[in-house]
Design a protein around this nucleic acid. Structure first.
Lengths: 307, 307
DNA sequence: GTTTTTCATAAGGACGACTTATCGTCACAA
DNA sequence: TTGTGACGATAAGTCGTCCTTATGAAAAAC
């Protein structure tokens, strides 16, 4: 009973509809004997005649009628499946689980999500915000499909696609407005407020200052858990901090702080998408990276215009 | 896209469940390469990867998950279909369209229907009552599955199975009770009330009397459309009539008429089932004829006991 | 009686699916 | 670093399945 085939169902359906072996065979684009044999095989598999053959006509038996109903259901489900497959060719479909680091998420996600929904209607988007190492782990475990992090990640199993590079800007109290912009050495002497450990942005900031990234920080109690908190701490006069360009608009809009850009050398980070090299979404993710690159470019230009 | 096979769905489902080519292949009782090839073929047909292959695991893609849902639906429908086929092996199932002549229907149908329902629960029984020629036509057209008529029908395309033979009895006014039973010749001189033309029972009665069956009947206006009417006409003193043994119980219960049985020669008819020789229900109909034969036998004995 | 129609059967050939054997790659361990 | 094992992909060959054309059988139509 395990040798029923969809082909048999298709032939059967055709014969049921036409009531004539020759015409049904023609409709199936096969020869009449081929159809006869498949029908016979189907009847043997099912253990009962599906048709009553007569010189004058070929009629479904009761049994055949019931089987026809069920067979048509199956063929319809098959058509649906094929249609679904056709419709999802090369498109992002269903669930997309995306991970984003905290220093990117609040600034990139709104436009990113809007773009994705616009381009891939019906996409079931799951967003997860956490630190890079966790995202890498989750990528490797297949718990998320793609992550947006600072490059490089340098995981052999992952493919990286750079999206954009952005500078870090100095955030200092409004009172410092107009003061000369410190260079790296001067910055090292200032009270630099940082994110908690684990944030890649923390390490990048420290690296820019040429400070040991893993050395104990005496004022660890002041480490913030978000850029927003950092800016508020600056506003409160606790020190200065760095934030990425992308965050300037959101985080300094309503804060009385002063923004200054470094010159020579300029601190910066490259944000990129990463995914498992083996991911079948590779093509779509590459396309998606293009989209993000464009919309991030627009974002950057807007930020630059603001500055 | 027209080469999707149920086999591929079964393999696919197994791989989705096991997440491991080797074990899935084992579950399908095939070799691992065979499974690999079918999965590959399926992915090519659908135009998108179903699995993400990794050294560590084999995971469904989003696309694969959706396809898995639909494939499982199809496999489930297939199982149902197979189960239905298995369950209906050799049994009467679904609709059974049965035609019965009017001089049999009222007396046989109650017990026949009860028997059929008892033996083939869920049978969708359609009963049609009309004259023999129409029943034969409907049989040949496939509009009914079986008919119960007086034999012989002598249609080459139909198979006949006798059920029982029953005598005709004379029905005359109560006043005639105890009078000698007329023989055929005497009967010919009496006012014999008959059914309308077309009823085989009419022809059989006339044949018994040796009257021309197709000759114009001067008192055609008196022809009745049912045995019940005939008996009432006898009761009204319009003449005498013949009715089949089977009808005696029902038709004379509440009528003040007298019943007499002929002797030597006894008029009689043979009731039988007929169906298309090509009908796939042949086996079941034969079995059914056995059942009817038995229950009609009981009926006949009861009638004989009453007489 | 002959022809036509229609479905079943027969014989042969092409294609597809399965098998075993082997490869390539990564992970893990010495 | 270098085996070693696990795992999936690939290769080659065989066998079975399904299709084709040709033919048969039986009834209907002419």
């Amino acid at each position: 009973m395990k040798n029923l085939t969809l082909k048999q169902f298709r032939y059967f359906e055709a014969l049921a509809r036409h009531g004539h072996f020759g015409r049904a065979a023609e409709a199936c684009a096969i020869s009449q004997p081929a159809l006869s044999m498949q029908i016979k095989a189907l009847e043997e598999e099912l253990g009962a005649p599906l048709f009553e053959r007569d010189r004058r006509q070929v009629r479904l038996t009761n049994f055949g009628e019931e089987i026809a109903l069920r067979a048509r259901d199956i063929l319809r489900a098959l058509d649906d499946l094929e249609g679904f497959a056709r419709a999802s060719r090369g498109r992002l479909v269903g669930r997309l689980r995306i991970g984003v680091i905290p220093t990117v998420a609040p600034y990139l996600l709104p436009s990113l999500i809007a773009d994705l929904i616009r381009l891939h209607g019906g996409l079931d988007l799951h967003v997860r915000e956490t630190l890079t190492p966790k995202l890498v782990q989750e990528l490797n475990d297949g718990r998320i499909d793609v992550a947006i992090v600072a490059l490089p990640v340098s995981e052999p199993s992952l493919t990286e696609a750079p999206l954009f590079t952005e500078e870090f800007v100095l955030v200092r109290p409004r009172a410092d407005e107009g003061q000369p912009v410190p260079n790296r050495e001067a910055l090292r002497e200032m009270r630099l407020l940082l994110l908690e450990e684990g944030h890649c942005f923390r390490e990048q900031a420290l690296t820019f200052c040429n400070r040991p990234t893993h050395a104990a920080q005496p004022r660890g109690l002041l480490d913030a858990s978000s850029l927003s908190t950092l800016v508020q701490m600056v506003e409160a006069g606790l020190g200065v901090t760095l934030i990425p360009e992308m965050a300037v608009g959101v985080e300094t809009r309503s804060a009385s702080v002063s923004i200054a850009r470094f010159t020579n050398p300029k601190p910066s980070r490259t944000i990129g998408m990463v995914w498992r090299t083996t991911s079948p979404l590779t093509a779509q993710l590459l396309q998606m990276s293009e989209t993000v690159r464009r919309s991030a470019g627009a974002l950057g230009q807007a930020a630059a215009a603001r500055a």
